[in-house]
């Protein structure tokens, strides 16, 4: 119990840090840009500065819930600590919205074999699922799938493209 609440406190402070200084992180530029672009495709994000109305947390770039992708190192499936606040926010949302169902979609870059990447993609999806569950999201609201290297987001044949393709997407089937 002690341990868990300490962890939650830590996550909360990280979350606060993340929400207040969204652009001041040490993340590589490409994935960060991409994470916010991910939402703009489904919703014309309102120019926020002067609007007084409540923003949709999934499209407000200042809200961690707007980040729908977790990116990985080459051939890696461990989750970097910078994604923990984002996943904690999603876990909290999922736990407090019993109707929410999320499909975790693991992907890989084009290098390496189809089959190894299929397995690696599943591992990346499961890694995210484990963090969400540890943060309180019920397993019954989560599912995983691997697309291996079959569904690249970026089509280039270079590290910038590959970095965007090594990821797990959180796909809300329902919110």
């Amino acid at each position: 119990m002690m341990k868990k609440s300490a962890a939650s406190l830590l996550l909360l402070s990280l979350l606060a840090a993340c929400a207040s200084t969204p652009t001041k992180t040490a993340q590589k530029p490409a994935p960060v840009q991409n994470m916010s672009q991910n939402q703009s495709t489904t919703n014309a994000a309102p120019a926020a500065s002067t609007q007084a109305t409540a923003l949709n947390p999934f499209t407000d770039p200042n809200n961690p819930l707007s980040h729908m992708s977790v990116y990985f190192g080459t051939n890696k499936s461990n989750i970097q600590s910078k994604y923990m606040p984002i996943l904690a926010a999603h876990a909290k949302y999922i736990a407090s919205h019993p109707s929410a169902h999320v499909r975790l979609e693991g992907n890989c870059d084009e290098r390496g074999s189809t089959e190894y990447n299929l397995a690696l993609g599943e591992r990346r999806a499961v890694a995210v699922k484990q963090v969400l569950e540890a943060d309180g999201a019920p397993a019954s609201q989560l599912q995983t799938i691997s697309y291996g290297k079959e569904k690249p987001k970026a089509l280039g044949h270079n590290e910038a493209a590959w970095a965007q393709n090594r990821r797990t997407d959180l796909d809300y089937l329902s919110k």
């Binding site: 499936s77 089959e115 299929l118 397995a119 599943e122 591992r123 499961v126 890694a127 691997s146």
Partner: peptide
């Protein structure tokens, strides 16, 4: 190959 969880 059957993949379930982390293991294949």
């Amino acid at each position: 190959v059957l993949t379930s969880g982390e293991a294949s």
